[in-house]
Design a binder for these strands. Sequence first.
RNA 1: GGUCCGUUCGUCUAGGGGUUAGGACACCAGAUUUUCAUUCUGGUAACACGGGUUCGAUUCCCGUACGGACUACCA
Length: 511
Amino acid sequence: MREVRVRFAPSPTGALHIGGVRTALYNYLLARQFGGTMILRVEDTDQTRFVPGAEEYILKSLEWVGIKIDEGIGVGGPHAPYRQSERKSMYMQYALQLINDGHAYYAFDTEQELEAMRERLKTAGVASPQYNSITRTQMRNSLTLPEDEVRALLDASTPYVIRLKVPRKEEVRLNDLIRGWVMVHSSQIDDKVLMKSDGMPTYHLANVVDDYLMKISHVIRGEEWLPSAPLHVLLYKYLGWENEMPQFAHLPLLLKPDGNGKLSKRDADQLGFPIFPLTWKDPNTGDVAVGYKESGYLPDALINFLAFLGWNPGTTQEIFSMEELIKTFSIERIGKAGTKFDIHKAQWFNQQYLRAKPDAELANYLLESLEQENIECSFEKATQIAVLMKERATFPKDFWAQGKFFFHAPTQFEESVVSKKWNDDAVKVLTAFKDAVVTAEAFDANVAKATLEHVTSTLGIGTGKIMQALRVSLTGAGAGPDLMMIMEIIGKNEVVTRIDYALQNIKVKVA
RNA sequence: GGUCCGUUCGUCUAGGGGUUAGGACACCAGAUUUUCAUUCUGGUAACACGGGUUCGAUUCCCGUACGGACUACCA
């Protein structure tokens, strides 16, 4: 097997889509598994769509999820430069070679002429008009124009493009690693533009030339490229690179969670989940899209989730570290069908990864939130809270979001709990409990529990009946972690103060 | 419209000529828990349809339907 060299080749036209991250991941896994090379190349041949900051964003995103680039943008390498705009001068020679070999030609048609041709064909009943082996005979190109006129036009710097001369009748075959043999008839491929009039190559030429020059062994990319893959095969053939042609693997697309269609930013916005790894501010519109990182997703969890979107190991194991993924991954086990994107699964993975973290790390998450709120808290106390909250957290920010009551006494009490559980018995027990706590010498969870049980049994009221009331008086809510531990953490004085406040501010609704 | 790709529980999927069609998420129920969550146990739920081939098809073949991608001097 030849040396594995794969590439992730995004266009810097905006933030990196989550589907792009998956594509990068699969490339990376293959490279690592075979001790190969992961290359990052930027395909910025369309200068009109260039977005400032996009390239840096892509770099940061890959770094955050733990995909390391061995060669290319940001790290350099033997095939530098890795930005296609900077490789501009390298492409023309190959286009010229194709012309010399009779596989390409100059075309001088203006936009208006092309438009007129399409109109003409449409009115004649052709659904999708193409510049191809038939129509090119009626256009202004080096195949129809006399040689000296072509030279004259070129000498006069007339704008032109170079088009591939696709044969009229030929079966183009391609063995995709995921889909098997894909056959396309050349009559369905149009004479694609290879060099644009601004001197830049199109995707097709640049991609093939760079993959060849960079000795790419596997092209792993989205399914949207499958229709143009036969064209690329033709290009390799005409350029004389058939033996160096990489293997292709076209990944199934990520689909909308509900309904149909390709997953888009719009869907993500509507359903309230991130679509970009990192928060992205669109430099043109100023719109801000919150990223996975900022939403509290852990990079390992996101990677695990993404890896399973279209791939599975064939076993029941679901939690995979990057290392395990590298060992287990295989292109053969990538599915063919499009995958609906389900954010619930991502949340589940996040929860799993969060729980697996050491307590100290969890405590730090809480401490970070507290710092932003300007609240002092010892590491020990934060750890205690984190341990208590662990089982109910999905995101790091949950420790604060669901544990505010540890630091702020409630001033509002959950209505439904109050109306159902706040009654005369509750008031009696809370009053007695509070008085008992005041006199307690040492106070911790055990003392709290013993005290409460003593009070309830003395009064002859079931403990279960008033627990909710006690909880709401201490935390404001009807649900939460172990109450006795909460009391230990907030401390004796706070317990007394909070119960007092609740007693004075909650009216008895039910007798 | 044309070309190409696809179709197993609601979702992600395993499987593959003869299986009680397996797992996970979600959902529901029960148990545990002072509540919620966790945990445990159990449950509902799928081979798109029609023809072949075959003793037998969810699995192979062909159609149909449905879905998706592509159809630019964008990638």
